[in-house]
C-alpha cells in the first residue's frame, strides 16, 4: 500500500510540474531580436553566400580567429602526442576485443556514424554542424572500434598514428592555403566571396566556408583518432620506459 502511495505521488508531481510549466510559470521565449542578430539574419547570405549564420560567423566574419583557434588545437594535439610517444613504435599484439555479437553490431553502427558525420560536415555551410562536429562524430566511430575490436585491428588495417598525423598535417596545410590564397590577388587574408565562388551552377557552396568545413572535418577526425590510439597504449609500457 505504501508503495502504491509513493508511486501515485511521483506520478502526481510529474503531471503537476508539467502543467505548472505549461500554464502558470511559462518559460519566456524572447520575442524581439537585438540589432546585431537582425544584421546577421538579413545580411549573412549576401555577405558570405551562406544561409547558416553561425558557420558564416565562424569561418567568414571572424574567420581569422577560427584559423588561429584551429592552429592552437593542432599544437595541443601535437603536444599531447609528443608526451605519449614511446620508443620503438606502437606495441602490436593479438587482437582480442569483445564478443562476436558486439562486433557485428559495431560494424553497422560505425557505418551509420560515418554516414552521419559526413552529412554534418558537408552541410556545415547550410545547416548547424560543420567540420568540427562532423570530425568529432567520425572520431567516435574509431573510439568505438578500439574497445570492441581492439586497437590492433586499426593498426592491421593501416590506421596508424603516423598516417593520422600526416592526414591532419595535410588538412591543416590545405586550411592555411585556403586562408592565404586570396593574398596572392592582393585581397585580405581569409577573404571569402571576393575570391571563392559562392555558387556553382546554381548550387550554394558558400565559397571558402565549405572548403574550411571539409578540411576541418579531416583534421579533427584524424587528430582525435590519433589521440585515441595513443591513449590505448597500456600504462605498463610507459612505466617500463621510465624505469629504463
Amino acid at each position: 500500500m505504501k508503495r502504491v502511495i509513493i508511486l501515485i505521488s511521483i506520478l502526481a508531481v510529474t503531471l503537476l510540474s508539467s502543467l505548472v510549466i505549461s500554464f502558470v510559470a511559462e518559460i519566456t521565449v524572447p520575442r524581439s531580436l537585438r540589432d546585431l542578430s537582425k544584421y546577421y539574419i538579413a545580411n549573412t547570405i549576401i555577405d558570405t553566400a551562406s544561409p547558416e549564420s553561425v558557420a558564416a560567423i565562424v569561418w567568414d566574419y571572424r574567420g581569422l580567429d577560427t584559423v588561429y583557434e584551429t592552429l592552437v588545437l593542432y599544437l595541443a594535439i601535437v603536444g599531447g602526442l609528443a608526451i605519449f610517444t614511446i620508443k620503438g613504435g606502437f606495441p602490436r599484439g593479438e587482437p582480442m576485443g569483445l564478443t562476436e555479437l558486439s562486433r557485428n553490431a559495431t560494424k553497422i553502427i560505425v557505418l551509420l556514424i560515418a554516414t552521419v558525420s559526413a552529412a554534418i560536415a558537408f552541410h556545415g555551410h547550410l545547416t548547424p554542424g560543420g567540420g568540427f562536429p562532423g570530425g568529432s562524430a567520425l572520431a567516435v566511430a574509431t573510439m568505438l572500434i578500439i574497445p570492441v575490436y581492439s586497437v590492433n585491428i586499426l593498426l592491421e588495417k593501416g590506421i596508424t598514428s603516423t598516417k593520422l598525423v600526416a592526414i591532419r598535417g595535410f588538412a591543416l596545410t590545405g586550411l592555411g592555403l585556403v586562408a592565404l590564397l586570396p593574398v596572392v590577388k592582393g585581397l585580405e587574408i581569409v577573404t571569402n566571396q571576393k575570391f571563392y565562388p559562392g555558387f556553382l551552377n546554381g548550387v550554394v557552396i558558400s565559397g571558402s566556408i565549405s572548403l574550411y568545413n571539409l578540411l576541418e572535418f579531416l583534421a579533427v577526425a584524424s587528430g582525435f583518432t590519433a589521440v585515441a590510439l595513443y591513449l590505448s597504449i597500456p600504462e605498463e609500457l610507459y612505466k617500463g620506459e621510465v624505469r629504463d
Partner: peptide, 9 residues
C-alpha cells in the same frame, strides 16, 4: 539525416 533532396545533398 540531411533532411533535403537538393542537388547538393
Amino acid at each position: 539525416f540531411a533532411g533535403s533532396l537538393s542537388t547538393y545533398t
